[in-house]
Design a protein around this nucleic acid. Structure first.
Lengths: 310, 310
DNA sequence: AACACACTGTTTACGCTGTATACAGTCATA
DNA sequence: TATGACTGTATACAGCGTAAACAGTGTGTT
């Protein structure tokens, strides 16, 4: 609980927590981290994370690409700050104080909405738990909803984790459709129609009898939300679990992680070998190219000299 | 149900279904799509999707980068085929025929294992439903597990979708830790320890009381699987729902998608404008640069000529 | 048998990416 | 007033995906 900041705290996280100190001397700064992040988010909202290049962000602000590096140490930092900006704070609980279930549903909907507004957030690769103020606030809000219950701390975390997972999954699928729609310039409706057609022509009853049945029943043209169904069943399960606890039942035994005993030992060595072989092959090719080029250059030189002297 | 292939079927999907015809004339092919995909997967397994470049794959096979384009029309195609290869087929049901619940748990575990072996699959952006043979097979297997139940087709799909979502979420988080471990060259244990430390120093009881409580209770050093808990509660909910149906209950009313009525109308116009402004800014900057350079070149030229004639 | 041409793997080239380095100009502090 | 930390800029480099042009290969047709 010391006040000294960890020396190897990732710069992006430090920035997110507002710990990074502003410099004192030198010319006045013309930009700010906030303006940069704002511009980057604006681009990502419209054209996706792929369109966010340092050059594009700088151009939008009227500066040169390299100028951004006076504010952000690398693109990864910028992306982390974008994520934090887009995540924002969870909504306050509604006035009519419902139970934990209503509140969790509210948080779920807010999260899905967030991903609809900023779909690119789901394209950011996860690296460990995101230790930023806003993501912590969402987690805190979820845990707060469950304080009245007799769930253990682990179980509360697991419940909130599941909510987040389901909203991300819903967001990913929706974003996928939106992406296709944008890239092909076609509206959503005709895409799902086209997809249904493709399914009907590729999924034969012979190879995929049950999937084919589902298609024939029209599951891919149905416009109800399957993710909402999943969420409700999950919350049903949690409610039943809580009721069972309050009737004097025991907590579920904690399960270990899914693991593949076969692979564990073999994997490490095998992967290390494979990695080495990749590197070797690349290096060999590069060297071969280099020698080849040098030989060609020397041959040309010799030819020229021979021509000049002869 | 015609046998004619859709003319605008994405080439990658056509390849995945083995519909693409082999050419007849010309020299014998030295490589094959399979070998290329295999090499790409091997690289991705070890160094992540980011390390899979056309050059790296080609080098691994001893060819030039451009040669790959005789087999695969673009990198996106290759990635789709990699996904298909890594996905593989779902495991056959175990001998002792359990109920739908055991089978779904089996499929869940298999999927998580898959993501542990090929974490990069989760880095591939989703675009619509993946209409490939192997992903269809997984879907089919999930639906097959539920045929005995009184769930509707929509509900069965929703259940399988939730299972897939949870396994992806679990895989994403695990892969995130693995990625950090690989990139920093530190083992998993000390990473989670370090993360716990960071949490303890950044998450104050003032700002995040409930999260802080959870941390103090040790939820981040606990090594039980929170995703398994989530899955079990979900399956509890599904079981209860089925029981209720079989007791003569009604199906849950289908819910519409989460939507933001405020934004819907405004968004389209706003985003279109923003997109235009980005493009304009970039074009302006590029033009300015070009003119500037040309002016500089002309000035230099003039100077030189003046010097030569004067 | 000879030609046409579809097809092979290669080379070269282009515009794009992130960012290291060097630079001249600016401004608070010693 | 001199110092030197700091600003935004310019240049450079390796790497990316891939379009276009190329000489060589082998099948099909004349």
């Amino acid at each position: 609980m010391s006040d000294t900041v960890e020396p190897d705290l990732p710069r992006g996280i430090a920035l997110a927590w507002g710990i990074a100190a502003d410099p004192q001397r030198g010319p006045k700064r013309e930009m700010s981290v906030e303006r940069i992040v704002e511009a980057a988010v604006a681009i990502a909202d419209v054209e996706g994370l792929g369109a966010v290049s340092m050059a594009a962000v700088a151009a939008r602000l009227g500066y040169t690409p390299m100028s951004l590096y006076r504010y952000v140490s690398a693109k990864d930092d910028l992306v982390l700050l974008m994520q934090e900006e887009a995540t924002g704070l969870p909504p306050e609980p509604g006035d009519e104080a419902g139970g934990w279930r209503e509140r969790l549903e509210e948080l779920y909907r807010a999260q899905v909405l967030l991903y609809m507004r900023h779909p690119w957030v789901l394209d950011i690769p996860i690296s460990g738990s995101p230790i930023t103020p806003n993501s912590a606030a969402w987690m805190d809000a979820g845990l707060a909803a469950l304080v009245g219950t007799s769930l253990s701390h682990d179980e509360r975390l697991a419940v909130m984790l599941a909510i987040t997972g389901q909203s991300r999954w819903c967001g990913s699928v929706l974003a996928g459709y939106a992406r296709v729609a944008r890239e092909t310039g076609v509206d959503d409706a005709s895409i799902s129609q086209r997809e249904d057609q493709l399914y009907r022509s590729l999924i034969t009853g012979d190879a995929y009898p049950f999937l084919r049945d589902a298609i024939d029943a029209g599951v891919f043209v149905d416009d109800s939300d399957p993710f909402a169904y999943g969420l409700e069943r999950f919350l049903d399960g949690v409610a039943a679990y809580i009721a069972q606890l309050e009737a004097g039942g025991a907590h579920a035994p904690s399960r270990g992680w899914v693991s593949d005993p076969d692979a564990e030992l073999a994997a490490d060595k095998r992967f290390r070998d494979a990695r080495k072989s990749v590197r070797d092959a690349e290096r060999a090719l590069r060297d071969a190219r280099k020698h080849e080029r040098q030989a060609a250059r020397e041959a040309a030189e010799r030819l020229k000299r021979a021509g000049a002297s002869g």
